[in-house]
């Protein structure tokens, strides 16, 4: 699904990613953990195509294509989805209107027929159940006046609706209480279908109790310093990042 080779990236003059190698197979869920400033969010941003970062070395293959050559929206249409750590507000643009335009752009790219308003609403109804998102939130402008939990649920709802092949969850657990965390995790788990791959970025092990990863990687100083199975997350919880050479 995704193959990252020797990836280096910087913001202005500062090198943040310093040689990342990572392979994610179809259906796998990988977790990336690491201290603040280790480059977790930079990795998410580089994969999604955020323009603040400059890739200086390395390559990323996504389903056999050179991901780094694609525009942001081309990546999205190919099936890369980023659940944002801080979802932005778009005043005056309703959630449903935005999502129908997004879904139709993606469907068009896949050679599928675009959905009309009726078909779309039917699909929305089905998908909202997954994350218990109220109709009222769908009619509101995108993320405007949403609570932190509602914003994160909205991200997972979008993920369910757009049916990406590869999902990046960037600190989706931050700012969530335990109930909201459970709802979000249940939504994510429902989307694990053996084919869809995920990269779960988190600071804390807590999320991984609910979304159980196939592999865990520790990112420190812009490199993956340790990889292992789900038990690695528990080790980190006990010993902190120092124990795996992650301290800086």
């Amino acid at each position: 699904m995704l193959e990252i080779k020797n990836l280096h990236a910087r913001v202005e003059e500062k090198e943040i990613l310093r040689g990342i190698d990572l392979t994610i197979l179809p259906g796998e869920v990988h977790a990336i953990m690491g201290p603040n400033g280790s480059g977790k969010s930079t990795l998410a941003g580089v994969l999604a195509g955020r323009e603040d970062y400059e890739v200086t070395q390395g390559e990323v293959l996504f389903q056999g294509k050179n991901l780094l050559e694609l525009d942001i929206e081309e990546r999205a249409r190919e099936g890369v989805f980023l659940a944002f750590q801080y979802p932005v507000e778009i005043p005056g643009v309703t959630n449903t209107y935005f999502l129908r335009a997004a879904l139709n752009a993606i469907r068009k790219h896949r050679g599928q027929a675009e959905l009309d308003a009726g078909q779309f609403l039917k699909l929305v109804k089905e998908k909202t159940k997954l994350v218990k998102l109220s109709d009222e939130l769908l009619k509101r402008p995108v993320n405007e006046g949403f609570s932190g939990g509602e914003k994160k649920r909205n991200e997972i709802f979008q993920m369910a609706l757009l049916e990406p092949n590869f999902c990046i969850l960037d600190e989706t657990d931050s700012g969530l209480d335990i109930d909201a965390l459970r709802i979000v995790a249940d939504g994510v788990n429902a989307l694990r279908d053996g084919k869809r791959s995920m990269l779960v970025i988190t600071h804390y092990q807590r999320l991984l109790n609910y979304i159980v990863p196939d592999k865990v990687h520790v990112l420190a100083g812009g490199r993956i310093v340790k990889s292992g199975g789900k038990e690695l997350a528990l080790e980190l919880e006990a010993g902190g990042y120092v124990g795996v050479g992650g301290a800086r």
Binding site: A48, G49, R50, E51, D71, I72, E73, R75, A76, R77, F81, L82, F84, P87, V88, I90, F98, L99, A101, A102, L103, A105, I106, H109, Q158, L162
Partner: peptide, 10 residues
């Protein structure tokens, strides 16, 4: 960026 990440053209 947010809208483009969801598949909309710039």
């Amino acid at each position: 960026f947010y809208l483009r990440q969801r598949g909309l053209s710039a």
